[in-house]
Amino acid sequence: MEELTFNEIISYAKIAEDNAKKFYLDAAAIAEQRNVKEFLESLADEEQGHSDRLEGLRKAIQERGVVPQMHQDIRNLGYADYIEPVNLDSDASYKDVLEVAMAKEKEAIKNYESFARYVDDPEARKLFGLLAEEERRHLKRFEEDYDDLQNQYY
C-alpha cells in the first residue's frame, strides 16, 4: 500500500464514486415512486459531484504538492452502525434509499480509514483521512435526513 501514489489513490476513490453513481442510477431506473426516482437521480448527481471534487483535489495536490488539511471533526449520529438496509426494488421508499445511502457511505469511510492505517507515507495517510472525512460529511447529511424522517416525533 505504501507504494500508492496520490494519483492512484484519487483514481481509486473516483472509481468508487462512479460505481456509487451507477448504483443509484440503476436503482432510479426501477423505482416506481416519482419522488424516490428523483431522489435516487439526485444522489447519482451528487456522486458525480464528488467525483468532480476528487478531480479538483488531484489538481490542487499536483499544484501545491501537499494534501489539504482536514477541517473539522464530523460527528455522526450512529444510525449506520446498526441499521441493516433493504435491497432497493421498485417499491423502494425514501427511507429505504436513505438506509442504503448511509450503508454505502459507512462502507466508504471504513475503506478509507483502513487504507489510512496501512500506508506509511504521512501525506497519503492524510489524503485517505481527508477522503474519509468527506464521506463522513455525506453520511452525516443522510443521517440527519433519516433522523428528520424517521424520528420526527421522537
Binding site: Q33, R34, N35, S93, Y94, K95, L149, Q152, Y153, Y154
Partner: peptide, 19 residues
C-alpha cells in the same frame, strides 16, 4: 413509542415516498 405509520395493506397505491 417513537412514531407510528399507516397500515397500507391493499391500499399501497396511495402511499407516497415518505409513507
Amino acid at each position: 413509542a417513537i412514531g407510528q405509520a399507516p397500515d397500507y395493506e391493499g391500499l399501497e397505491r396511495f402511499k407516497n415516498d415518505r409513507g
